[in-house]
Simulated assay, not measured.
Amino acid sequence: MNTAYWLLAAPLALFYAYAGTLKATRSPDQLRPMMAWVDRVPLPALRALGAVEVLGAIVLVLPPLTGVAPPLALAAAVGLVLLQAGAVAVHLTGGDRRIALNLGLVSTAAVTVWLAVGLR
């Protein structure tokens, strides 16, 4: 179960670390070609979303890796499921039907939640 957790959590953490860093550091003009929804979100909310994604990536990996407070990884995985559920809603309310990536991420995070239960 530990190997399966790492096979999902590591790429998930890399994705969120990258995406969160982009949202936390780039301007909306730079993000617009990749994320059409950035104009519907205030800049402080976009920066906060980026910070939450980076924090989620760190907490998904660091506690199980160090053995200090591994249940936090479960909380991070649940948070990422909720984050992507919100992302699907933002896409759909904006008329954007391209949610395949979001559905893949929510599914991966949900399986990671299940695997993180075994980390305790």
Rank of each mutant, 00 (worst) to 15 (best):
M34A: 13
A87E: 02
A13H: 10
A36C: 13
A89Q: 11
G104P: 09
A116S: 08
A48W: 12
L83V: 03
A85V: 15
V61D: 03
A10N: 04
A69F: 11
A24V: 06
W37I: 05
I58R: 01
T112Y: 00
L60I: 03
V59A: 11
L83F: 15
L103V: 14
G86L: 07
G118V: 04
F15I: 12
L103W: 13
A9E: 06
P11M: 10
M1A: 09
V38S: 01
R97H: 03
A110N: 09
L14K: 00
L22G: 06
S27C: 10
R26V: 11
L55C: 07
Q84N: 13
W37N: 11
V106I: 15
F15K: 08
L14Q: 05
G79L: 10
A73V: 08
L46I: 12
A89D: 00
P70H: 08
V78N: 09
Y16N: 15
L14W: 06
L65R: 11
T93H: 11
A69I: 00
L119W: 01
R40D: 15
G20E: 03
A36L: 10
L65E: 02
N102L: 06
M1K: 06
L74W: 05
M35P: 06
P28R: 14
G20W: 05
G95W: 10
R40H: 12
V117C: 09
Y18F: 13
A116L: 08
A4D: 05
Q30E: 14
L83W: 12
L62E: 01
A100K: 08
T3Q: 07
V117G: 04
V111Q: 13
P33M: 13
V111A: 14
H91T: 00
W37R: 14
A85I: 14
A10R: 02
L7N: 09
P63G: 07
A4Q: 04
A9N: 00
L7H: 02
L62W: 10
L60T: 05
Y16E: 09
A9W: 02
L74G: 02
V113L: 03
L7E: 01
V106G: 01
E53D: 11
A45T: 12
A36S: 14
A76P: 01
N102P: 07
T21P: 02
G95H: 07
Y16Q: 15
A109Q: 08
A109I: 06
G79K: 03
Y18V: 15
H91R: 08
A24T: 06
A69T: 01
V117F: 01
T25W: 04
V113H: 00
P44I: 02
A10K: 03
L83T: 03
L55Q: 00
T66P: 05
L82F: 10
V59Y: 05
G79C: 07
Y16R: 04
R98H: 06
L31G: 10
L65P: 01
L115F: 10
L12G: 00
L31R: 07
F15P: 04
G20A: 07
L62D: 05
G86K: 13
Q30K: 12
A109T: 09
A19P: 10
W114K: 08
L119I: 12
W37F: 13
G104M: 08
V117W: 11
D39G: 10
L115E: 12
V52H: 13
Y16W: 15
P64Q: 01
L115T: 05
V41I: 15
A116T: 09
P42G: 07
G118I: 01
V81D: 06
L31S: 04
T21S: 14
P44Y: 07
P44D: 09
A9V: 07
Y16C: 10
I58G: 00
A85S: 13
